[in-house]
Amino acid sequence: MELTPQTYSQLVKEASPPSPHAKNISMAFFIGGGICVLGQAFIYLYMGLGVPKETASGMASITLVLLAVILTGLNTYDRIAKVAGAGTLVPITGFANSMSAAALDFKSEGFILGLGAKMFIIAGPVIVYGISASILYGFVYWLLGQL
């Protein structure tokens, strides 16, 4: 058999064990769902304290961010994430972890060019493309409003 990148990639595929998909997906489902339930609990907690619903939702998100940052600092978030996969990536806690993990890690290169600059090394694109998408949407929304 002639060894080409194509034939080799077939060999590689056969030799590489697959990820445990069923386990990964169910863990992502349960842990991700659990984080959302926790968020819902905070929403009710803040509403119970007399905060309006929409503000309560924002405060719940910030609470989750705080918890994720604390768990990151205590070297725990990555351990949960190893099991949870997308279950800890997709919720806002994953965004918070990506920023705090980078902040902790790059502190060794100083506060300005280390911590300050590299905090956004993973979360940066989320902000860049999220805000850009919102501006594009806003432009369309504004145009439609002018008609």
């Binding site: 990820s19 998909h21 990964n24 997906i25 169910s26 863990m27 992502a28 489902f29 349960f30 842990i31 991700g32 769902g33 659990g34 984080i35 959302c36 339930v37 968020g39 819902q40 996969g85 997308a86 279950g87 990536l89 997709v90 919720p91 994953g94 965004f95 990506s98 993973i122 979360a123 694109p125 989320v126």
Partner: peptide, 27 residues
């Protein structure tokens, strides 16, 4: 909240397991 949140995360896991998307791309 559990079912919808869990489902949205499970879709993320499908993307991790079956595509070459990096976590940053998925976010």
């Amino acid at each position: 909240a559990f079912l919808v949140g869990g489902l949205l995360c499970a879709i993320g896991q499908l993307l991790i397991d079956f595509t070459k998307f990096t976590p940053a791309r998925i976010l």
